[in-house]
Design a protein around this nucleic acid. Sequence first.
RNA 1: AGGGGUGUAGCCAAGCGGUAAGGCAACGGGUUUUGAUCCCGUCAUGCGUAGGUUCGAAUCCUGCCACCCCUGCCA
Length: 556
Amino acid sequence: MTEEKAKPANFIEKIIQDDLASGKHDNIQTRFPPEPNGYLHIGHAKAICVNFGLAQQFGGQCNLRFDDTNPEKEEDEYVQAIQSDVKWLGFDWAGDIHYTSDYFDQLHEWAVYLIKEGKAYVCDLSAEQTKEYRGSFEKVGTNSPFRDRSIEENLALFEKMRLGEFDEGACGLRVKIDMTSPNMSMRDPYIYRIKKATHHQTGDKWCIYPSYDYAHGQSDALEGISHSVCTLEFADHRPLYDWFIENLPVPAQPHQYEFGRLSINYTVTSKRKLRALVEGKVVNGWDDPRMPTISGMRRRGYTPAAIRHFCDSLAVSKTDGTVDVAQLEFFIRDDLNQNAPRGTCVINPLKVVINNMAADHSENITVPFLQDRPEMGERDVPFSSEIYIDQNDFKEEYSKKFKKKFCVGKRIRLRHGYVIEAEGFEKDEQGNIVQVNAKLIENTLGCDPEDGDKPKGVVHWISCAHAVEAELRMYKRLFSDENPDGGNKDFMECLTPDSLEVTTALIEPALAGVAPESVFQFEREGYYVADRVDHSIDKPVFNLTIGLREDKGLAS
RNA sequence: AGGGGUGUAGCCAAGCGGUAAGGCAACGGGUUUUGAUCCCGUCAUGCGUAGGUUCGAAUCCUGCCACCCCUGCCA
Protein backbone atom coordinates (compact mmCIF):
# COMPACT_ATOMS: atom_id res chain seq x y z
CA MET A 1 0.00 0.00 0.00
CA THR A 2 1.29 3.40 -0.84
CA GLU A 3 1.60 5.22 2.42
CA GLU A 4 1.88 8.93 1.99
CA LYS A 5 5.46 10.10 1.82
CA ALA A 6 6.49 13.22 3.64
CA LYS A 7 4.62 16.07 2.04
CA PRO A 8 5.50 19.71 2.51
CA ALA A 9 3.17 21.36 5.00
CA ASN A 10 0.32 23.34 3.48
CA PHE A 11 -0.49 26.86 4.63
CA ILE A 12 -3.12 25.75 7.13
CA GLU A 13 -0.79 23.18 8.66
CA LYS A 14 1.79 25.92 9.04
CA ILE A 15 -0.69 28.16 10.78
CA ILE A 16 -1.59 25.36 13.16
CA GLN A 17 2.07 24.56 13.82
CA ASP A 18 2.63 28.24 14.65
CA ASP A 19 -0.46 28.42 16.86
CA LEU A 20 0.68 25.36 18.77
CA ALA A 21 4.24 26.67 19.07
CA SER A 22 3.16 30.10 20.26
CA GLY A 23 0.74 28.67 22.77
CA LYS A 24 -2.22 30.36 21.10
CA HIS A 25 -3.87 26.95 21.12
CA ASP A 26 -3.05 23.84 23.14
CA ASN A 27 -5.58 21.73 21.40
CA ILE A 28 -6.75 21.57 17.83
CA GLN A 29 -10.44 21.31 17.17
CA THR A 30 -11.92 21.30 13.66
CA ARG A 31 -15.31 20.53 12.23
CA PHE A 32 -16.92 19.31 9.07
CA PRO A 33 -20.16 21.29 8.68
CA PRO A 34 -22.31 20.01 5.80
CA GLU A 35 -25.77 21.36 5.16
CA PRO A 36 -28.13 18.38 4.96
CA ASN A 37 -29.65 19.46 1.67
CA GLY A 38 -28.11 16.86 -0.62
CA TYR A 39 -25.63 14.04 -0.80
CA LEU A 40 -21.92 14.45 -0.20
CA HIS A 41 -19.70 14.53 -3.27
CA ILE A 42 -15.99 14.26 -4.02
CA GLY A 43 -15.54 17.93 -3.14
CA HIS A 44 -16.88 17.22 0.33
CA ALA A 45 -14.55 14.24 0.53
CA LYS A 46 -11.67 16.68 0.26
CA ALA A 47 -13.14 18.88 2.98
CA ILE A 48 -13.66 15.81 5.16
CA CYS A 49 -10.08 14.64 4.64
CA VAL A 50 -8.75 18.12 5.33
CA ASN A 51 -10.75 18.68 8.52
CA PHE A 52 -10.54 15.20 9.98
CA GLY A 53 -6.98 14.90 8.71
CA LEU A 54 -5.86 18.10 10.44
CA ALA A 55 -7.38 16.95 13.71
CA GLN A 56 -5.70 13.54 13.45
CA GLN A 57 -2.38 15.01 12.46
CA PHE A 58 -2.24 17.41 15.39
CA GLY A 59 -3.78 15.14 18.00
CA GLY A 60 -7.06 17.05 18.10
CA GLN A 61 -10.61 16.27 17.28
CA CYS A 62 -13.06 16.95 14.50
CA ASN A 63 -16.78 17.41 14.97
CA LEU A 64 -19.48 16.51 12.52
CA ARG A 65 -21.95 19.36 12.54
CA PHE A 66 -25.04 19.64 10.44
CA ASP A 67 -25.42 23.23 9.39
CA ASP A 68 -29.18 23.14 9.48
CA THR A 69 -30.35 26.74 9.53
CA ASN A 70 -32.64 26.49 6.53
CA PRO A 71 -35.50 24.01 7.11
CA GLU A 72 -36.94 24.67 3.69
CA LYS A 73 -34.05 22.97 1.95
CA GLU A 74 -33.03 20.32 4.41
CA GLU A 75 -34.22 16.81 5.14
CA ASP A 76 -33.51 14.00 7.54
CA GLU A 77 -32.79 11.68 4.61
CA TYR A 78 -29.69 13.74 3.96
CA VAL A 79 -28.52 13.79 7.55
CA GLN A 80 -28.65 10.00 7.57
CA ALA A 81 -26.89 9.66 4.22
CA ILE A 82 -24.15 12.10 5.20
CA GLN A 83 -23.37 10.25 8.41
CA SER A 84 -23.09 6.97 6.59
CA ASP A 85 -20.85 8.47 3.91
CA VAL A 86 -18.47 9.99 6.46
CA LYS A 87 -18.21 6.71 8.32
CA TRP A 88 -17.72 4.74 5.15
CA LEU A 89 -14.87 7.04 4.19
CA GLY A 90 -13.24 5.91 7.40
CA PHE A 91 -13.67 8.88 9.71
CA ASP A 92 -15.06 9.11 13.18
CA TRP A 93 -16.31 12.33 14.62
CA ALA A 94 -15.67 13.37 18.16
CA GLY A 95 -18.51 12.61 20.55
CA ASP A 96 -22.08 13.14 19.48
CA ILE A 97 -23.21 14.58 16.22
CA HIS A 98 -23.76 18.30 16.45
CA TYR A 99 -26.41 20.39 14.82
CA THR A 100 -26.43 24.12 14.47
CA SER A 101 -30.04 23.75 15.58
CA ASP A 102 -28.71 22.56 18.96
CA TYR A 103 -27.73 26.19 19.48
CA PHE A 104 -30.95 27.88 18.40
CA ASP A 105 -31.75 28.91 21.99
CA GLN A 106 -28.31 30.36 22.58
CA LEU A 107 -28.28 32.03 19.19
CA HIS A 108 -31.65 33.59 19.91
CA GLU A 109 -30.45 34.81 23.28
CA TRP A 110 -27.40 36.40 21.66
CA ALA A 111 -29.60 38.06 19.07
CA VAL A 112 -31.53 39.65 21.90
CA TYR A 113 -28.19 40.65 23.40
CA LEU A 114 -27.21 42.38 20.17
CA ILE A 115 -30.51 44.26 20.15
CA LYS A 116 -29.94 45.35 23.74
CA GLU A 117 -26.49 46.54 22.80
CA GLY A 118 -28.07 48.63 20.07
CA LYS A 119 -26.29 46.55 17.43
CA ALA A 120 -29.26 44.83 15.83
CA TYR A 121 -32.62 46.00 14.58
CA VAL A 122 -35.78 44.66 13.06
CA CYS A 123 -36.10 45.88 9.48
CA ASP A 124 -39.41 46.00 7.64
CA LEU A 125 -37.94 46.58 4.21
CA SER A 126 -39.14 44.13 1.58
CA ALA A 127 -36.63 41.96 -0.21
CA GLU A 128 -36.62 44.29 -3.20
CA GLN A 129 -36.26 47.38 -1.06
CA THR A 130 -33.44 45.75 0.88
CA LYS A 131 -31.67 45.18 -2.36
CA GLU A 132 -32.10 48.80 -3.43
CA TYR A 133 -30.91 50.12 -0.10
CA ARG A 134 -27.89 47.85 -0.20
CA GLY A 135 -26.46 49.72 -3.18
CA SER A 136 -23.99 48.04 -5.50
CA PHE A 137 -20.29 47.42 -5.97
CA GLU A 138 -19.80 50.97 -7.18
CA LYS A 139 -22.45 52.64 -5.04
CA VAL A 140 -22.55 52.68 -1.26
CA GLY A 141 -25.72 51.59 0.45
CA THR A 142 -28.27 53.68 2.29
CA ASN A 143 -29.28 53.15 5.87
CA SER A 144 -32.62 51.45 6.33
CA PRO A 145 -35.34 53.79 7.63
CA PHE A 146 -35.85 51.22 10.41
CA ARG A 147 -32.23 51.31 11.50
CA ASP A 148 -32.82 53.67 14.41
CA ARG A 149 -35.74 51.99 16.09
CA SER A 150 -35.47 51.98 19.83
CA ILE A 151 -34.12 49.01 21.67
CA GLU A 152 -37.52 48.45 23.28
CA GLU A 153 -39.31 48.51 19.96
CA ASN A 154 -36.76 46.12 18.43
CA LEU A 155 -37.09 43.77 21.37
CA ALA A 156 -40.88 43.77 21.06
CA LEU A 157 -40.79 43.31 17.30
CA PHE A 158 -38.24 40.51 17.43
CA GLU A 159 -40.38 38.75 20.03
CA LYS A 160 -43.39 39.08 17.75
CA MET A 161 -41.31 37.59 14.96
CA ARG A 162 -40.51 34.64 17.17
CA LEU A 163 -44.14 34.24 18.11
CA GLY A 164 -45.14 33.99 14.48
CA GLU A 165 -47.09 37.21 14.37
CA PHE A 166 -45.60 38.28 11.04
CA ASP A 167 -45.71 36.72 7.65
CA GLU A 168 -42.57 35.39 6.03
CA GLY A 169 -40.62 38.25 4.50
CA ALA A 170 -42.52 40.90 6.41
CA CYS A 171 -39.42 41.75 8.40
CA GLY A 172 -36.13 40.36 9.62
CA LEU A 173 -33.46 41.03 12.18
CA ARG A 174 -30.40 42.84 10.88
CA VAL A 175 -27.12 43.68 12.44
CA LYS A 176 -25.99 47.28 12.40
CA ILE A 177 -22.57 47.39 10.79
CA ASP A 178 -21.80 49.66 7.85
CA MET A 179 -23.94 50.34 4.79
CA THR A 180 -20.97 52.01 3.09
CA SER A 181 -18.62 49.07 3.42
CA PRO A 182 -17.02 47.94 0.16
CA ASN A 183 -17.63 44.42 1.46
CA MET A 184 -21.26 43.73 0.63
CA SER A 185 -21.60 41.20 3.42
CA MET A 186 -20.98 43.98 5.96
CA ARG A 187 -23.90 46.14 4.77
CA ASP A 188 -26.23 45.34 7.66
CA PRO A 189 -26.68 41.63 6.97
CA TYR A 190 -29.84 39.85 8.06
CA ILE A 191 -29.23 37.42 10.89
CA TYR A 192 -32.76 36.13 11.47
CA ARG A 193 -35.54 35.54 9.00
CA ILE A 194 -39.06 34.24 9.30
CA LYS A 195 -39.63 30.78 7.89
CA LYS A 196 -42.81 29.04 8.87
CA ALA A 197 -41.44 25.65 8.09
CA THR A 198 -41.11 22.48 10.13
CA HIS A 199 -37.50 21.76 10.93
CA HIS A 200 -36.20 18.19 10.72
CA GLN A 201 -34.61 18.51 14.17
CA THR A 202 -36.57 21.14 16.07
CA GLY A 203 -40.00 20.53 14.57
CA ASP A 204 -42.28 23.55 14.95
CA LYS A 205 -40.50 25.11 17.88
CA TRP A 206 -39.22 27.97 15.76
CA CYS A 207 -40.57 30.09 12.95
CA ILE A 208 -37.49 32.30 12.83
CA TYR A 209 -34.15 30.89 11.80
CA PRO A 210 -30.62 32.30 12.05
CA SER A 211 -28.62 32.92 8.90
CA TYR A 212 -25.45 31.02 8.08
CA ASP A 213 -23.26 34.04 8.72
CA TYR A 214 -24.70 34.57 12.14
CA ALA A 215 -24.89 30.94 13.19
CA HIS A 216 -21.66 29.54 11.91
CA GLY A 217 -18.98 31.32 13.86
CA GLN A 218 -20.98 31.19 17.07
CA SER A 219 -21.46 27.45 16.66
CA ASP A 220 -17.71 27.19 16.17
CA ALA A 221 -17.15 29.15 19.36
CA LEU A 222 -19.63 27.04 21.29
CA GLU A 223 -17.89 23.86 20.20
CA GLY A 224 -14.45 25.23 20.92
CA ILE A 225 -13.37 25.01 17.31
CA SER A 226 -9.86 26.40 17.00
CA HIS A 227 -9.53 26.41 13.23
CA SER A 228 -12.65 26.81 11.16
CA VAL A 229 -11.69 25.74 7.68
CA CYS A 230 -13.93 26.50 4.74
CA THR A 231 -13.76 27.22 1.04
CA LEU A 232 -12.57 30.38 -0.69
CA GLU A 233 -15.96 31.90 -1.45
CA PHE A 234 -16.37 32.58 2.26
CA ALA A 235 -13.28 34.73 2.48
CA ASP A 236 -15.39 37.87 2.05
CA HIS A 237 -17.43 36.78 5.03
CA ARG A 238 -14.47 36.53 7.37
CA PRO A 239 -14.77 40.15 8.59
CA LEU A 240 -18.39 39.42 9.47
CA TYR A 241 -17.41 36.16 11.15
CA ASP A 242 -14.91 38.13 13.23
CA TRP A 243 -17.43 40.89 13.94
CA PHE A 244 -19.78 38.48 15.68
CA ILE A 245 -16.98 36.88 17.65
CA GLU A 246 -15.89 40.34 18.84
CA ASN A 247 -19.36 41.64 19.61
CA LEU A 248 -20.82 38.66 21.38
CA PRO A 249 -19.88 37.10 24.72
CA VAL A 250 -18.78 33.87 23.08
CA PRO A 251 -16.74 31.31 25.03
CA ALA A 252 -13.91 31.01 22.49
CA GLN A 253 -12.24 32.87 19.65
CA PRO A 254 -12.23 30.62 16.61
CA HIS A 255 -10.69 31.76 13.34
CA GLN A 256 -11.73 31.06 9.82
CA TYR A 257 -9.31 29.95 7.12
CA GLU A 258 -10.20 29.37 3.50
CA PHE A 259 -8.79 27.04 0.87
CA GLY A 260 -9.65 26.33 -2.75
CA ARG A 261 -12.61 24.17 -3.56
CA LEU A 262 -11.94 21.00 -5.53
CA SER A 263 -12.90 20.91 -9.19
CA ILE A 264 -12.34 17.91 -11.42
CA ASN A 265 -12.63 17.95 -15.17
CA TYR A 266 -15.38 15.98 -16.95
CA THR A 267 -17.64 16.27 -13.95
CA VAL A 268 -19.67 18.67 -11.87
CA THR A 269 -19.36 19.22 -8.16
CA SER A 270 -22.27 21.38 -7.26
CA LYS A 271 -25.15 20.06 -5.24
CA ARG A 272 -27.57 22.05 -7.35
CA LYS A 273 -26.40 20.39 -10.55
CA LEU A 274 -26.18 16.94 -9.02
CA ARG A 275 -29.72 17.32 -7.77
CA ALA A 276 -30.82 18.32 -11.26
CA LEU A 277 -29.31 15.11 -12.62
CA VAL A 278 -31.20 13.08 -10.05
CA GLU A 279 -34.49 14.93 -10.41
CA GLY A 280 -34.23 15.01 -14.18
CA LYS A 281 -33.74 11.22 -14.12
CA VAL A 282 -30.53 11.54 -16.07
CA VAL A 283 -29.08 9.12 -13.55
CA ASN A 284 -30.72 6.58 -11.28
CA GLY A 285 -30.46 8.40 -7.99
CA TRP A 286 -27.77 10.07 -5.92
CA ASP A 287 -25.87 6.79 -5.68
CA ASP A 288 -25.80 6.12 -9.41
CA PRO A 289 -22.28 4.86 -10.16
CA ARG A 290 -21.77 7.70 -12.63
CA MET A 291 -22.29 10.32 -9.94
CA PRO A 292 -19.31 11.99 -8.26
CA THR A 293 -21.14 11.56 -4.97
CA ILE A 294 -19.52 9.51 -2.25
CA SER A 295 -22.40 7.04 -2.41
CA GLY A 296 -22.14 6.91 -6.20
CA MET A 297 -18.42 6.25 -6.09
CA ARG A 298 -19.02 3.61 -3.47
CA ARG A 299 -21.52 1.85 -5.70
CA ARG A 300 -19.07 2.21 -8.56
CA GLY A 301 -16.47 0.25 -6.62
CA TYR A 302 -14.22 3.04 -5.43
CA THR A 303 -12.68 2.24 -2.08
CA PRO A 304 -12.46 4.60 0.90
CA ALA A 305 -8.67 4.28 0.80
CA ALA A 306 -8.52 5.27 -2.85
CA ILE A 307 -10.64 8.34 -2.23
CA ARG A 308 -8.59 9.27 0.83
CA HIS A 309 -5.32 8.86 -1.03
CA PHE A 310 -6.64 11.00 -3.85
CA CYS A 311 -7.71 13.73 -1.44
CA ASP A 312 -4.38 13.57 0.33
CA SER A 313 -2.64 14.04 -2.99
CA LEU A 314 -4.44 17.32 -3.52
CA ALA A 315 -3.07 20.62 -2.46
CA VAL A 316 -4.68 22.67 0.23
CA SER A 317 -4.00 26.02 -1.34
CA LYS A 318 -5.78 29.15 -2.44
CA THR A 319 -5.72 28.56 -6.17
CA ASP A 320 -8.90 27.49 -7.88
CA GLY A 321 -7.56 24.82 -10.14
CA THR A 322 -9.18 21.90 -11.85
CA VAL A 323 -7.68 18.52 -11.18
CA ASP A 324 -7.47 16.04 -14.02
CA VAL A 325 -9.87 13.14 -13.48
CA ALA A 326 -6.94 10.90 -14.47
CA GLN A 327 -5.45 11.69 -11.07
CA LEU A 328 -8.51 10.26 -9.33
CA GLU A 329 -8.43 7.25 -11.63
CA PHE A 330 -4.79 6.68 -10.81
CA PHE A 331 -5.57 6.25 -7.13
CA ILE A 332 -8.43 3.80 -7.62
CA ARG A 333 -6.32 1.69 -9.95
CA ASP A 334 -3.42 1.90 -7.54
CA ASP A 335 -5.50 0.57 -4.66
CA LEU A 336 -7.34 -2.08 -6.64
CA ASN A 337 -4.22 -3.31 -8.40
CA GLN A 338 -2.71 -4.06 -5.02
CA ASN A 339 -5.78 -5.33 -3.25
CA ALA A 340 -8.47 -6.57 -5.60
CA PRO A 341 -8.65 -10.34 -6.06
CA ARG A 342 -8.51 -11.45 -9.70
CA GLY A 343 -11.18 -13.31 -11.58
CA THR A 344 -12.23 -14.09 -15.11
CA CYS A 345 -15.04 -12.63 -17.14
CA VAL A 346 -15.52 -13.15 -20.86
CA ILE A 347 -17.49 -10.32 -22.34
CA ASN A 348 -17.76 -11.32 -26.02
CA PRO A 349 -17.60 -15.11 -25.97
CA LEU A 350 -16.02 -17.04 -28.82
CA LYS A 351 -16.05 -20.81 -28.50
CA VAL A 352 -12.78 -22.68 -28.78
CA VAL A 353 -12.99 -26.45 -29.22
CA ILE A 354 -9.90 -28.35 -28.25
CA ASN A 355 -9.93 -31.37 -30.48
CA ASN A 356 -7.18 -33.43 -28.99
CA MET A 357 -8.93 -33.65 -25.62
CA ALA A 358 -11.62 -36.11 -24.66
CA ALA A 359 -14.96 -34.37 -25.06
CA ASP A 360 -15.92 -35.27 -21.52
CA HIS A 361 -12.59 -34.32 -19.99
CA SER A 362 -12.82 -32.00 -17.05
CA GLU A 363 -10.26 -30.88 -14.50
CA ASN A 364 -9.86 -28.17 -11.94
CA ILE A 365 -6.96 -25.80 -11.95
CA THR A 366 -6.21 -24.15 -8.64
CA VAL A 367 -5.58 -20.46 -9.03
CA PRO A 368 -4.72 -17.86 -6.40
CA PHE A 369 -7.11 -14.95 -6.05
CA LEU A 370 -4.14 -12.64 -6.08
CA GLN A 371 -0.61 -13.57 -7.07
CA ASP A 372 1.84 -13.04 -4.21
CA ARG A 373 -0.98 -12.64 -1.70
CA PRO A 374 -1.59 -16.23 -0.55
CA GLU A 375 -3.65 -15.02 2.40
CA MET A 376 -6.34 -14.04 -0.07
CA GLY A 377 -6.87 -17.70 -0.89
CA GLU A 378 -7.39 -19.54 -4.11
CA ARG A 379 -10.21 -20.90 -6.18
CA ASP A 380 -10.80 -23.85 -8.47
CA VAL A 381 -11.11 -23.00 -12.12
CA PRO A 382 -12.71 -25.77 -14.19
CA PHE A 383 -11.09 -26.57 -17.51
CA SER A 384 -12.62 -28.68 -20.28
CA SER A 385 -12.40 -29.29 -24.02
CA GLU A 386 -14.79 -26.45 -24.89
CA ILE A 387 -13.95 -23.01 -23.61
CA TYR A 388 -14.82 -19.41 -24.35
CA ILE A 389 -12.27 -16.75 -25.04
CA ASP A 390 -12.99 -13.16 -26.04
CA GLN A 391 -13.71 -12.44 -29.69
CA ASN A 392 -11.16 -9.64 -29.59
CA ASP A 393 -8.41 -12.08 -28.76
CA PHE A 394 -8.73 -14.12 -31.96
CA LYS A 395 -7.66 -12.65 -35.26
CA GLU A 396 -8.30 -14.17 -38.63
CA GLU A 397 -4.99 -12.96 -39.91
CA TYR A 398 -1.75 -12.43 -38.08
CA SER A 399 -0.17 -9.00 -38.03
CA LYS A 400 2.52 -7.38 -35.93
CA LYS A 401 -0.09 -5.34 -34.16
CA PHE A 402 -1.73 -8.57 -33.09
CA LYS A 403 1.43 -10.33 -32.09
CA LYS A 404 -0.05 -11.19 -28.71
CA LYS A 405 -3.36 -12.36 -30.13
CA PHE A 406 -4.48 -15.81 -31.15
CA CYS A 407 -4.66 -16.87 -34.79
CA VAL A 408 -4.40 -19.99 -36.91
CA GLY A 409 -1.03 -21.65 -36.68
CA LYS A 410 -0.13 -19.65 -33.60
CA ARG A 411 -0.03 -20.62 -30.00
CA ILE A 412 -1.54 -18.80 -27.09
CA ARG A 413 -1.30 -19.32 -23.36
CA LEU A 414 -4.58 -19.79 -21.53
CA ARG A 415 -4.15 -17.66 -18.45
CA HIS A 416 -3.29 -19.90 -15.50
CA GLY A 417 -3.73 -22.89 -17.84
CA TYR A 418 -2.31 -24.66 -20.83
CA VAL A 419 -0.92 -23.52 -24.12
CA ILE A 420 -3.14 -24.20 -27.13
CA GLU A 421 -2.60 -23.79 -30.83
CA ALA A 422 -5.26 -22.74 -33.34
CA GLU A 423 -5.79 -25.06 -36.27
CA GLY A 424 -8.78 -23.46 -37.95
CA PHE A 425 -12.04 -21.60 -37.44
CA GLU A 426 -15.64 -21.58 -38.60
CA LYS A 427 -17.84 -18.73 -39.77
CA ASP A 428 -21.56 -18.21 -39.90
CA GLU A 429 -23.51 -16.98 -42.96
CA GLN A 430 -22.72 -13.36 -42.07
CA GLY A 431 -19.06 -14.08 -42.05
CA ASN A 432 -18.58 -13.85 -38.31
CA ILE A 433 -16.12 -16.21 -36.73
CA VAL A 434 -18.17 -18.45 -34.47
CA GLN A 435 -15.76 -21.16 -33.46
CA VAL A 436 -12.07 -21.78 -33.26
CA ASN A 437 -10.64 -25.29 -33.50
CA ALA A 438 -7.49 -25.83 -31.55
CA LYS A 439 -5.21 -28.39 -30.07
CA LEU A 440 -3.76 -28.56 -26.60
CA ILE A 441 -0.01 -28.63 -26.22
CA GLU A 442 0.80 -31.28 -23.66
CA ASN A 443 2.69 -30.57 -20.47
CA THR A 444 2.29 -26.82 -20.56
CA LEU A 445 0.47 -26.25 -17.29
CA GLY A 446 2.87 -24.03 -15.39
CA CYS A 447 5.67 -24.49 -17.91
CA ASP A 448 6.64 -23.69 -21.45
CA PRO A 449 6.19 -26.06 -24.40
CA GLU A 450 8.92 -28.64 -24.61
CA ASP A 451 9.56 -27.88 -28.27
CA GLY A 452 10.64 -24.39 -27.35
CA ASP A 453 7.87 -22.65 -29.34
CA LYS A 454 6.68 -20.27 -26.65
CA PRO A 455 3.38 -18.44 -27.10
CA LYS A 456 3.61 -14.66 -27.36
CA GLY A 457 0.36 -13.84 -25.67
CA VAL A 458 -2.00 -14.81 -22.91
CA VAL A 459 -5.78 -14.87 -23.02
CA HIS A 460 -8.42 -15.29 -20.35
CA TRP A 461 -11.00 -18.03 -20.83
CA ILE A 462 -13.88 -19.88 -19.22
CA SER A 463 -14.99 -23.48 -19.54
CA CYS A 464 -18.26 -23.47 -21.52
CA ALA A 465 -19.96 -25.98 -19.31
CA HIS A 466 -19.15 -24.02 -16.16
CA ALA A 467 -19.62 -20.43 -17.25
CA VAL A 468 -22.18 -18.36 -15.34
CA GLU A 469 -24.13 -15.50 -16.85
CA ALA A 470 -23.78 -12.11 -15.23
CA GLU A 471 -25.11 -8.67 -15.96
CA LEU A 472 -22.39 -6.13 -16.60
CA ARG A 473 -23.05 -2.44 -16.24
CA MET A 474 -20.37 -0.54 -18.07
CA TYR A 475 -20.08 3.16 -17.42
CA LYS A 476 -18.50 5.96 -19.34
CA ARG A 477 -17.89 9.38 -17.86
CA LEU A 478 -21.18 11.23 -17.47
CA PHE A 479 -19.96 14.29 -19.31
CA SER A 480 -18.04 14.33 -22.55
CA ASP A 481 -17.14 17.99 -22.14
CA GLU A 482 -13.99 18.68 -20.18
CA ASN A 483 -15.61 21.53 -18.34
CA PRO A 484 -19.38 20.96 -18.08
CA ASP A 485 -19.39 23.30 -15.09
CA GLY A 486 -17.82 26.10 -17.03
CA GLY A 487 -18.83 29.49 -18.22
CA ASN A 488 -22.20 30.02 -19.74
CA LYS A 489 -22.82 26.56 -21.12
CA ASP A 490 -25.66 24.33 -20.02
CA PHE A 491 -24.15 21.33 -18.28
CA MET A 492 -27.10 19.23 -19.38
CA GLU A 493 -25.97 19.72 -22.96
CA CYS A 494 -22.59 18.20 -22.13
CA LEU A 495 -23.85 14.74 -21.23
CA THR A 496 -22.30 11.67 -22.81
CA PRO A 497 -25.08 10.04 -24.89
CA ASP A 498 -24.71 6.43 -23.72
CA SER A 499 -22.90 6.64 -20.43
CA LEU A 500 -24.40 3.35 -19.27
CA GLU A 501 -24.23 0.17 -21.30
CA VAL A 502 -25.77 -2.98 -19.88
CA THR A 503 -24.60 -6.27 -21.29
CA THR A 504 -24.49 -9.92 -20.41
CA ALA A 505 -21.17 -11.62 -19.92
CA LEU A 506 -19.84 -14.92 -18.63
CA ILE A 507 -18.04 -15.19 -15.34
CA GLU A 508 -16.22 -18.06 -13.77
CA PRO A 509 -18.33 -19.97 -11.24
CA ALA A 510 -16.31 -18.82 -8.21
CA LEU A 511 -17.46 -15.23 -8.79
CA ALA A 512 -21.20 -15.76 -8.82
CA GLY A 513 -21.64 -16.06 -5.08
CA VAL A 514 -19.47 -13.19 -3.90
CA ALA A 515 -20.84 -10.60 -1.51
CA PRO A 516 -22.21 -7.32 -2.82
CA GLU A 517 -19.52 -4.61 -2.95
CA SER A 518 -16.72 -7.10 -3.57
CA VAL A 519 -14.36 -5.62 -6.12
CA PHE A 520 -12.43 -7.80 -8.54
CA GLN A 521 -10.06 -7.31 -11.33
CA PHE A 522 -11.49 -9.26 -14.23
CA GLU A 523 -8.13 -10.02 -15.73
CA ARG A 524 -7.32 -8.19 -18.95
CA GLU A 525 -10.69 -6.40 -18.78
CA GLY A 526 -10.89 -4.09 -15.82
CA TYR A 527 -12.04 -3.68 -12.26
CA TYR A 528 -15.63 -4.62 -11.49
CA VAL A 529 -17.66 -4.50 -8.32
CA ALA A 530 -20.61 -6.69 -7.37
CA ASP A 531 -23.46 -4.21 -7.26
CA ARG A 532 -24.30 -3.13 -3.75
CA VAL A 533 -28.04 -3.26 -4.40
CA ASP A 534 -28.84 -5.64 -7.24
CA HIS A 535 -26.18 -8.34 -7.13
CA SER A 536 -27.20 -11.81 -5.94
CA ILE A 537 -26.01 -15.34 -6.45
CA ASP A 538 -29.05 -16.00 -8.63
CA LYS A 539 -28.48 -12.91 -10.73
CA PRO A 540 -24.92 -11.66 -10.53
CA VAL A 541 -24.58 -7.97 -11.38
CA PHE A 542 -21.21 -6.26 -11.72
CA ASN A 543 -20.45 -2.59 -12.28
CA LEU A 544 -17.38 -1.42 -14.14
CA THR A 545 -15.30 0.50 -11.64
CA ILE A 546 -12.56 1.42 -14.07
CA GLY A 547 -10.77 -0.22 -16.94
CA LEU A 548 -7.15 -1.29 -16.95
CA ARG A 549 -4.69 1.14 -18.43
CA GLU A 550 -4.15 0.35 -22.04
CA ASP A 551 -1.09 0.50 -24.20
CA LYS A 552 -2.07 3.49 -26.27
CA GLY A 553 -0.77 2.58 -29.71
CA LEU A 554 -2.83 -0.61 -29.75
CA ALA A 555 -6.26 -1.29 -31.14
CA SER A 556 -8.08 -4.34 -29.93
C1' A B 1 -8.50 52.79 -8.23
C1' G B 2 -15.62 49.05 -5.50
C1' G B 3 -13.89 44.79 -2.21
C1' G B 4 -11.62 39.96 -1.66
C1' G B 5 -8.50 36.01 -3.83
C1' U B 6 -5.07 33.74 -7.37
C1' G B 7 -1.26 33.43 -11.41
C1' U B 8 5.44 28.17 -11.43
C1' A B 9 5.27 22.37 -17.37
C1' G B 10 -0.77 19.57 -20.52
C1' C B 11 -3.03 19.14 -14.94
C1' C B 12 -2.13 19.65 -9.48
C1' A B 13 1.88 21.63 -6.81
C1' A B 14 6.77 22.64 -3.66
C1' G B 15 9.75 26.70 -3.38
C1' C B 16 9.93 32.30 1.11
C1' G B 17 17.27 36.03 -1.94
C1' G B 18 21.98 31.39 -3.72
C1' U B 19 20.70 29.40 -9.35
C1' A B 20 13.25 25.33 -10.59
C1' A B 21 11.01 19.17 -5.34
C1' G B 22 7.17 15.72 -6.03
C1' G B 23 2.58 13.47 -8.10
C1' C B 24 -0.77 12.84 -12.46
C1' A B 25 -0.52 12.82 -17.79
C1' A B 26 2.66 12.11 -21.99
C1' C B 27 6.84 9.89 -24.45
C1' G B 28 11.09 6.27 -24.93
C1' G B 29 13.20 1.43 -23.10
C1' G B 30 13.36 -3.27 -19.94
C1' U B 31 10.74 -7.37 -17.29
C1' U B 32 6.09 -10.05 -17.50
C1' U B 33 1.53 -16.75 -17.85
C1' U B 34 -2.96 -9.83 -17.28
C1' G B 35 -0.57 -5.45 -24.01
C1' A B 36 -2.03 -4.64 -16.44
C1' U B 37 1.45 -4.24 -12.54
C1' C B 38 6.70 -3.42 -11.80
C1' C B 39 11.55 -1.21 -13.23
C1' C B 40 14.64 2.46 -15.81
C1' G B 41 14.91 7.00 -18.57
C1' U B 42 13.00 11.78 -20.97
C1' C B 43 9.83 15.95 -20.00
C1' A B 44 10.34 24.54 -17.32
C1' U B 45 17.90 28.38 -19.45
C1' G B 46 12.01 28.86 -17.14
C1' C B 47 8.25 30.88 -12.68
C1' G B 48 1.40 35.94 -15.97
C1' U B 49 3.98 40.46 -17.96
C1' A B 50 7.26 45.02 -18.13
C1' G B 51 10.68 47.48 -15.48
C1' G B 52 13.64 48.21 -10.88
C1' U B 53 16.86 46.75 -6.42
C1' U B 54 20.95 43.06 -5.80
C1' C B 55 27.25 39.93 -6.93
C1' G B 56 22.78 36.96 -7.39
C1' A B 57 15.37 37.39 -8.03
C1' A B 58 10.14 32.50 -8.92
C1' U B 59 11.37 34.72 -4.18
C1' C B 60 12.12 42.00 -2.58
C1' C B 61 9.93 46.85 -5.00
C1' U B 62 6.81 49.37 -8.84
C1' G B 63 3.54 49.40 -12.95
C1' C B 64 0.51 46.50 -16.09
C1' C B 65 -2.34 42.03 -17.70
C1' A B 66 -5.43 37.69 -16.93
C1' C B 67 -8.70 34.58 -14.22
C1' C B 68 -12.04 33.39 -9.87
C1' C B 69 -15.47 35.12 -5.86
C1' C B 70 -18.94 39.03 -3.66
C1' U B 71 -24.91 43.30 -4.55
C1' G B 72 -30.03 35.77 -1.05
C1' C B 73 -34.32 37.44 4.42
C1' C B 74 -29.07 30.35 0.53
C1' A B 75 -24.94 27.86 2.55
